[in-house]
């Protein structure tokens, strides 16, 4: 895979990433209809988060697979493109989503159910906050993992493949490192 093909592959992976939380936060009040609606929204959101987790892991694998197919003489330009052009935009998008999530979290935390609605509303809120927390962790994990890929694939940081597997060979092995 050449650099152009890699860029197209990467653009495709990023285009498939889920980028926006579809959880419309509204203040739940203790009326049966609103709470049913709120809890249903939380349940949909929980399902989406679970699907997104798989999508992000699959995206990481696709990016690594694309790097694996790049010939050695193209790896440095591919890393430069990835680190300097592609990653900043991905990070901006992820940071925007993290801001959205923090905002949703704050709005939910500010809701203080009154005494008579306390238990039902509190349970719904706790579940929504837990889903937001999980979503946040997924985004942060993806951000951290994708940010490490340039280092992971830099030729200087890849294993040479000269594995010492016998103590009898130790001095020869160490001399080979010095000679390269």
């Amino acid at each position: 895979m050449g650099l152009m093909a890699f860029r197209q592959e990467f653009a495709g992976v990023i285009a498939e990433l889920p980028t926006s939380p579809q959880f419309a936060v509204q203040s739940p009040t203790y009326t049966p209809d609103v709470m049913i609606e709120f809890n249903a929204a939380v349940q949909r959101y929980e399902r989406q988060v679970s699907v997104w987790q798989k999508s992000f892991l699959a995206a990481l694998e696709k990016i690594r697979a694309a790097f694996d197919q790049i010939p050695d003489d193209q790896i440095e330009p591919a890393i430069s493109y990835f680190a300097e052009d592609a990653l900043p935009e991905v990070f901006r998008n992820l940071d925007d989503r993290l801001v959205d999530l923090r905002s949703a979290q704050t709005r939910l935390q500010e809701i203080s159910p009154s005494a008579h609605e306390s238990e039902v509303v509190s349970t719904g809120l706790a579940r929504a906050l837990a889903a937001i927390e999980k979503h946040t962790e997924i985004l942060q994990h993806f951000k951290e993992s994708v940010g490490l890929i340039p280092e992971e694939y830099h030729p200087d940081n890849r294993p040479v493949g000269d594995v010492l597997s016998s103590i009898e060979d130790f001095d020869n092995w160490f001399d080979r490192i010095l000679k390269h």
Binding site: N157, P159, V160, I167
Partner: peptide, 16 residues
Amino acid sequence: MIQLDYTNRFKKSLSK
């Protein structure tokens, strides 16, 4: 016994 491999970065740092 521990098995070892190394990176080019290690080689470069060793050479210094």
